[in-house]
């Protein structure tokens, strides 16, 4: 797992995707920070975090698109799958590499907190609550993106499909409000990533939502392992 993790981290930066990801993340978070937080004269960064949901939704597929699709296209998967490593360590090595890059990008908020500290008080409890909420959201989204990357050889297809799927998840709330049946409405709402995430940004740290995000991550990593395994039996 360590070897794959290190190689993926290196590949993020040799391929340039890592730089693009960090730059776009910094650009939009900076924009939302200066407009929503500094501009409105508050010291709470929650508005920035809630606006970042949609940016994360579009950025994570960029991070995950090539992780497995490119291996298959370049036939480098033959090297991985015939090496003495388990499928789960291949998948997790890649998963944690992407997650690490996401954490690096997200940690830019600590620079913003320094800026706030210069002119006021940082509310650390809400900041950390938001920080971890975004981390868990990213953990779930990366697992979904990695899973979709395992389904295709084409990284553009992987990116577009991932964006589409994540966007559908974002729309679940509005979808829920338009369905007539109550049980379906409830089911859709309980699956809503957006409402669970915005709960955190409004200051509520809900452990059931943490569990929801983490189990999504575990479930999709498991699916990815199954996809790789199934291909061998095809």
């Amino acid at each position: 797992m360590g070897a794959i993790y290190r190689r993926e981290m290196g590949a993020f930066f040799t391929s340039g995707i890592g730089y693009v990801f960090l730059a776009v993340f910094a650009l939009f978070s900076g924009l939302f920070f200066s407009m929503g937080v500094i501009g409105s004269g508050v010291s709470d960064m929650s508005p920035m975090f809630s606006s970042m949901f949609i940016i994360v939704l579009f950025l994570i597929p960029i991070l995950t698109m090539r992780l497995l699709s490119e291996e298959k296209k370049n036939r480098t998967d033959q090297g991985l799958l015939t090496a003495p490593v388990s499928l789960s360590s291949i998948v997790l090595g890649k998963y944690f590499a992407a997650l690490t890059l996401f954490i690096i990008a997200e940690s830019i908020v600590f620079i913003y907190s320094v800026i706030i500290a210069l002119c006021g008080d940082v509310i650390w409890s809400t900041l950390l609550g938001n920080y971890f909420a975004m981390l868990f959201l990213g953990a779930a989204f990366i697992a979904i993106g990695l899973f979709i990357s395992s389904l295709t050889e084409n990284q553009m297809a992987a990116a577009v499909i991932s964006m589409f799927v994540l966007f559908i998840l974002y729309l679940l709330d509005s979808l829920a409000s338009s369905v007539p049946w109550d049980f379906l409405k409830k089911a859709l709402l309980s699956l809503s990533f957006y409402s669970r995430y915005t709960e955190f940004t409004s200051g509520l740290f809900d452990f059931s939502s943490v569990l929801f995000f983490l189990s999504t991550a575990v479930l999709f990593n498991f699916f990815t392992v199954r996809v790789l395994d199934k291909k061998r039996w095809g």
């Binding site: 190689r7 370049n74 480098t76």
Partner: peptide, 18 residues
């Protein structure tokens, strides 16, 4: 199964670890 963006040395070290 070569990662074409890597150097030969980087690649062989990766396979060594793998």
């Amino acid at each position: 199964p070569l990662y074409v963006d890597m150097t030969v040395d980087g690649y062989l070290n990766f396979m060594f670890d793998l």
